Simulated scan of single mutants.
Amino acid sequence: MKTLFVTTSILLMAACAPAQSAEKSDITTSANVAIATAGPQAPYEITRTDGLSEMIIAGGCFWCVESDFEKLTGVTEAISGYSGGTLDNPDYKTVSYKETGHYEVVKVIFDPTVVTYRQLVDHYWKTVDPTDPRGQFCDKGSSYRTAIFATPEQMAAAQASRKNIIETKPFAAEIVTPILQAVTFYDAEDYHQDYYKKNPVRYNYYRTGCRRDKTLKKLWGDS
């Protein structure tokens, strides 16, 4: 698998992002106890006035998370970004090569009259391997860890969803995906946005090479 990832990365010009050292993937951040009023640890607030809502999730490569969620009825857009770390205005290179604590995340914008936050969180679990504390699929490192970043209004629903998936999961491995307080979201660079649409051949080759869908099928079956 390691050889496959390296080959895939070269062909895709580092694919989603270069792998980080697994030994450095256990960063402790204060994302779940945010008390700042500004900067990377400031609590995230949904301030929309168009009737839509938002959720922030980390599921490994944000190209794949975008693709998985923009296909859902009720989701209007998915935006790749960074959140949860200690660096203000992070960029791809810094997050990928240094230990800033940031996750690759996606902000999902949705119509709550069509699909609820709880329904989206329930869907999220089946799109990731929530048993892996080191990353996702062929991408290992702190920025590829899974997490649900919830606002105070979303916290109860997120925790209830996690409790349900722990009780109903079709495998024995422990769920390690945390529920964290949502903090400042930073948009990723333009070339990352809608990557699966702009570069479908490279995206599909990367996703297949990472065995993302095969791993999910093995983990979740048809559930």
Results as ranks from 00 to 15, higher is better:
residue 9 S to W: 00
residue 124 Y to W: 15
residue 4 L to D: 12
residue 73 T to E: 15
residue 70 E to D: 11
residue 166 I to E: 15
residue 189 E to G: 09
residue 110 F to T: 00
residue 85 G to N: 03
residue 160 A to S: 12
residue 129 D to M: 09
residue 206 Y to D: 03
residue 55 M to P: 05
residue 3 T to S: 12
residue 144 Y to K: 01
residue 218 K to F: 04
residue 64 C to M: 14
residue 102 H to F: 02
residue 143 S to C: 10
residue 15 A to P: 00
residue 100 T to Q: 09
residue 197 K to A: 04
residue 88 D to L: 13
residue 42 A to R: 06
residue 18 P to N: 12
residue 91 D to G: 12
residue 102 H to W: 03
residue 115 V to M: 06
residue 129 D to L: 10
residue 70 E to T: 13
residue 37 T to Q: 14
residue 170 P to L: 04
residue 197 K to Q: 10
residue 76 T to S: 14
residue 138 C to G: 07
residue 13 M to Q: 13
residue 214 K to H: 07
residue 167 E to I: 12
residue 149 F to W: 10
residue 143 S to G: 03
residue 187 D to K: 13
residue 170 P to M: 04
residue 47 T to G: 09
residue 104 E to G: 04
residue 25 S to A: 15
residue 18 P to E: 11
residue 7 T to P: 00
residue 138 C to Q: 02
residue 189 E to V: 02
residue 141 G to H: 04
residue 164 N to L: 09
residue 210 C to T: 09
residue 190 D to P: 08
residue 150 A to F: 08
residue 125 W to C: 00
residue 107 K to E: 05
residue 59 G to P: 00
residue 221 G to A: 07
residue 104 E to V: 02
residue 22 A to K: 14
residue 2 K to W: 11
residue 20 Q to H: 06
residue 97 Y to S: 14
residue 173 A to K: 15
residue 83 S to D: 03
residue 139 D to V: 07
residue 157 A to Q: 11
residue 194 D to T: 03
residue 187 D to L: 14
residue 121 V to C: 05
residue 182 A to F: 11
residue 208 T to E: 13
residue 13 M to Y: 09
residue 2 K to N: 12
residue 152 P to G: 03
residue 90 P to M: 01
residue 92 Y to A: 05
residue 157 A to M: 10
residue 25 S to G: 12
residue 161 S to K: 04
residue 16 C to G: 05
residue 126 K to S: 06
residue 219 L to G: 05
residue 217 K to E: 12
residue 32 N to F: 13
residue 40 P to N: 07
residue 120 L to H: 01
residue 84 G to T: 02
residue 22 A to V: 13
residue 108 V to C: 04
residue 209 G to F: 01
residue 11 L to Q: 05
residue 221 G to H: 06
residue 151 T to W: 09
residue 177 T to D: 07
residue 185 F to Q: 00
residue 152 P to I: 01
residue 193 Q to F: 04
residue 153 E to T: 10
residue 54 E to P: 03
residue 112 P to N: 07
residue 209 G to L: 06
residue 34 A to N: 06
residue 5 F to S: 14
residue 152 P to V: 00
residue 60 G to W: 06
